[in-house]
């Protein structure tokens, strides 16, 4: 299931493109206020799942595609990940036409596939892809630390933000440790197979990583106390909404508000 997380890109920091984007000319999305981007992605998701009309659902997908281009995310890897996600929901999409009752469109090996089911499967594919693309373009293009700070400014509980920031930080560290353990196992001729020995070895690996994680966290806590950490988030950046952010927010909200209207109009015309 997780091959999509990739071997070389197992950490958010490794995949996050904004570090490269910030060096060169910042994209139009990167210069927007992170809070606006998070709220826009959430609103987009809510409106998109509420739509039903297949033709209208193409518009959110196009909006997400446009956002992807404006955010200057690497097209290849992003679309490849999306395609992999589609691969996982393919089973669901292929089964739907046969389980939704309705007028049969085609008959496959004696099983009728209904139009209604085909439509529902297409709607799910459109919604899932549009939302993930938009989320990746607007929010995924920011630094994970910025995401944490913006969430805190949006009044997400402070210790949840701390947990997020810690997790982001230590995924890279723990992943490096995991690779080191795997190399050590490989040197000792461990080849995973479908047998009890392999499962036990992997279990010991997971257990050892957890033990080391706890010991590491004790050192972290000591180091934080040593530096006088008192539980407040110290933010070095100051977010403030500019005219561009407000303009983007208003335009985006108007675009979203238009979608249900279009759906009603299209439904009446049909």
């Amino acid at each position: 299931m997780s091959h999509l997380l990739g071997d070389g890109a197992a950490t958010p920091t490794a995949t996050a493109p904004e570090s490269a984007g910030a060096g060169s000319a910042a994209s139009a999305v990167a210069s927007l206020d992170p809070r606006i981007r998070i709220l826009a992605a959430c609103a987009f998701a809510l409106v998109t799942v509420a739509l039903d009309d297949l033709l209208i659902l193409v518009i959110p997908l196009m909006m997400a595609g446009a956002a992807l281009i404006v955010a200057r995310l690497p097209l290849g890897p992003t679309l490849r990940r999306l395609a992999m996600m589609d691969g996982f929901i393919l089973v669901l999409l292929l089964m739907l036409p046969f389980t939704v009752p309705g007028e049969p469109a085609v008959t496959l090996f004696g099983w009728p596939a209904s139009w209604a089911g085909l439509e529902q499967a297409a709607a799910i594919a459109l919604k899932a892809n549009a939302i993930l693309l938009m989320l990746g373009s607007l929010v995924g293009s920011m630094d994970p630390t910025t995401l944490g700070h913006a969430l805190w400014r949006l009044r997400v509980p402070e210790n949840l933000v701390h947990l997020l920031l810690f997790t982001v930080r230590y995924i890279a560290v723990v992943d490096a440790e995991y690779r080191r353990h795997r190399r050590a196992m490989k040197v000792r001729c461990f080849r995973p197979g479908t047998n009890l020995h392999s499962l036990r070895a992997i279990g010991y690996l997971v257990g050892m990583m957890l033990v080391r994680a706890l010991e590491r966290s004790e050192r972290i806590l000591q180091a934080m106390k040593c530096r006088g950490f008192n539980g407040r988030l110290v933010l070095l950046d100051d977010l403030c909404l500019g005219r561009r952010d407000i303009l983007f927010g208003v335009l985006f909200a108007m675009g979203l508000a238009l979608l249900p209207v279009l759906e009603v109009l299209h439904g009446r015309a049909a």
Partner: peptide, 18 residues
């Protein structure tokens, strides 16, 4: 810190393929 590092470890554990 303990919860964060353990949470990161569980994240990495889901990358392990059997």
């Amino acid at each position: 810190p303990a919860a964060g590092v353990l949470s990161a470890t569980f994240f990495v554990a889901t990358l392990i393929h059997v």
